[in-house]
Each structure stands twice: as C-alpha cells, then as structure tokens.
Write a protein that binds this DNA or RNA. Structure first.
Length: 257
DNA sequence: GCCAACGTTGGC
DNA sequence: GCCAACGTTGGC
C-alpha cells in the first residue's frame, strides 16, 4: 500500500544533556545516512513510530533553532523496535522506570534521502496557514497544498516531535523544497531580522546547509559520536520524565513573575 | 478519574 | 532568554 508520510524533529544546535551533545543536524544526518531515532519519550510520538512502515516518507525538521523548518527528506528503514537507550543509565534519555522485559519506548531507523534544495522555514508554512491562499511565490502548491498545510500538526499544535503528515502537505512541501521562489525574508516576515550587508565571509567550505539562514551553532566540530558505531542522538530528546526517578516529589521552584 | 500545579517544548 | 502552550503528575 501507499507509503505514509511523517515529520520528525531534531535539533541542529549543540545542547548538552547529561554530558552528551544531542545535536543532530541535517549535515549529521546526511553523514550517517541511517540512524536509529532514539530518545523519544513521549507516548503519542512513540505510538506514531509504531505505525511506521519501511518505505514511509519522512520530513526531517530542524527544531529549537534560529530558523526552524524542513531541511531534508528521509525514509523509514526499519520498523519499531525497543529503544535500548532507555535502559542505559549513562544515556541522556535513560528511563529507570522501564525494563527489557517490558519495553516502553520504541524507535525506528530512518535513512536520509535528500536535502531540501530550498530549506522550507516554519515561518513560511505559518504564513501560508494564516492566509486563505498561498503567497504568489508559492502559488504552485495550489489550494490543496494550502489546506493541507493549515492542518499540519506542526502548525496547529507544535509540540509533538513525531507527527503524521497528510500526502497533500507532503507534496506541497516537496514542491516548495524543490522550487523555492519565496523571498528569503518572507519567512521571517513577522520578525525584525535585520539582515546585515552580505559582506560576510561566505561560510567557508563547510556549508552548514541551513539555507534558511546562518544559524550556525558554534561551528563546533561534529560531535565525536559520528563514527558508525555510536549512533547519533536524533529526535527530541527531552520529554523525558525520567530523571527524578522515584525520589523528588515535584518541587515548586516556580517563580514566574 | 478530575484537575491544578508543574515542567518541558520550542518559537520568537 | 522569555514565556505561551500544553503534556504530565499526583493529590484528592
């Protein structure tokens, strides 16, 4: 049967969690090609991964960064199996409440397919979703594309790290990634992003691929775990209600305002 | 099993 | 770095 479509989020910027860098950018993804999508600690996201089948298509999304958006296309390479990182006490997403007899968390393997020739910023998707029709630059996605984008979980709820995507939305985004056509700043329309003159040094050889703009997280060297033995840490890594374990009743440190 | 407090997600 | 939104927790 026809492949289904999904969206999966990863963080392109370095962030240290329990001593490990959870960064997983499109460049990291392209370099490893296939990765276990470990670290998902949210039940709904996990359930969606269990529905995935080999060959399903995946939008690879850059999250929690300066220019969030769709950076690449990928494919499901292996169906859900227990996420062993939940049992590794040294792992950032260790979950002491689970055990091997009765796995709670699952992951799939995902294979990198193509980089988006044009990074598709969340801001553009929001802009499309906010209007009744697409901006003229992306008129080619048609009414169906607009409708489907309006309905994307990415736009309507945001906080889920693994989402279902309907085919029309997938095709619309695929076209946008291929054709582009929008102004660079259309994406950041609502946001005052002063762009400096581009006298900048053109990012030297290492094009980080964020055509969206140069987020560039500290050009740090790619984290060592890039050898094929160590899987990178993709996915939303938080969502772990794990630490705390049995102790620590909720403490009220909340001081807002 | 309700629901308010709490913590996390993640855009901005 | 702020903070809105929202999922989770746990007291009752």
């Amino acid at each position: 049967m026809a492949p289904k479509h999904w969206l999966m989020k990863a963080e392109p910027n370095s962030r240290i969690e329990k001593g490990k860098d959870v960064k997983f950018s499109v460049d990291d993804f392209e370099a490893v090609k296939t990765t276990p999508w470990e670290g998902v600690r949210n039940a709904e996201a996990r359930n969606l991964m269990k529905e995935m089948r080999v060959g399903d298509r995946v939008l690879f999304y850059h999250s929690n960064c300066k220019s969030p958006g769709i950076a690449a296309f990928a494919e499901v390479a292996k169906e859900a199996y227990p996420d062993y990182t939940a049992w590794d006490s040294a792992h950032p997403y260790y979950d002491p409440k689970t055990d091997k007899e009765n796995p709670k968390w699952f992951m799939v393997d995902v294979t990198f397919k193509d980089r988006a020739a044009n990074f598709v910023p969340l801001a553009l998707l929001r802009q499309i979703a906010a209007s009744t029709k697409s901006p003229s630059e992306v008129a080619y996605i048609g009414a169906d594309g607009v409708r489907a984008i309006k309905e994307m979980a990415l736009v309507t709820r945001g906080r889920l790290s693994v989402q279902r995507v309907e085919p029309d939305a997938w095709y619309a985004i695929k076209s946008m990634a291929e054709k582009g056509g929008w102004e660079d700043n259309a994406a950041s329309a609502s946001k005052p992003t002063p762009k400096l003159k581009q006298t900048k040094s053109k990012k030297g050889g290492k094009n980080r691929g964020n055509e969206g703009d140069a987020v560039d997280e500290g050009n740090g060297p790619i984290p060592k775990e890039h050898d094929d033995r160590l899987p990178p840490l993709p996915a939303r890594k938080r969502r772990a209600q794990s630490d705390e374990e049995e102790m620590a009743p909720r403490r009220s440190t909340r001081i807002r305002k």
